[in-house]
């Protein structure tokens, strides 16, 4: 029996559970027994990307809400966060392009 095809887009790995907290989000990796914490900005970005947002779109929306930070800087932070999440083996797949 073949496994169901993976849906496209960024997603949490099968063994990872996300739990919202007052300050952001905690991610539990049941495979390794480790847990991770995202601050409020990180949680906001991850939720938006898991919901199908593009990195540039998420950065643009965030830049419109905050002061004194360029969209380019936030876009770089989004890409860096994506790299860290993948390196920690918390996410798989690629975010929507656009």
């Amino acid at each position: 029996m073949t496994p169901p095809p993976e849906r496209p887009g960024l997603r949490l790995r099968r063994d990872v559970t996300a739990c919202d907290t007052e300050t952001g989000m905690v991610l539990l990796d049941e495979r390794t027994g480790r847990y991770w914490q995202l601050n409020g900005t990180g949680a906001h970005i991850l939720r938006a990307l898991l919901d199908g947002g593009t990195p540039d779109g998420v950065a643009e929306a965030l830049a419109a809400r905050v002061e004194a930070v360029s969209r380019e800087q936030i876009a770089a932070d989004v890409r860096d966060l994506l790299d860290r999440l993948a390196a920690a083996r918390l996410t798989e797949g690629a975010p929507a392009a656009g």
Binding site: Q37, G40, I74, R84
Partner: peptide
Amino acid sequence: VYEPPVLAGIGSFP
């Protein structure tokens, strides 16, 4: 006020 995103490992599961 913008705070950069932070991902931190905070531990593991007598």
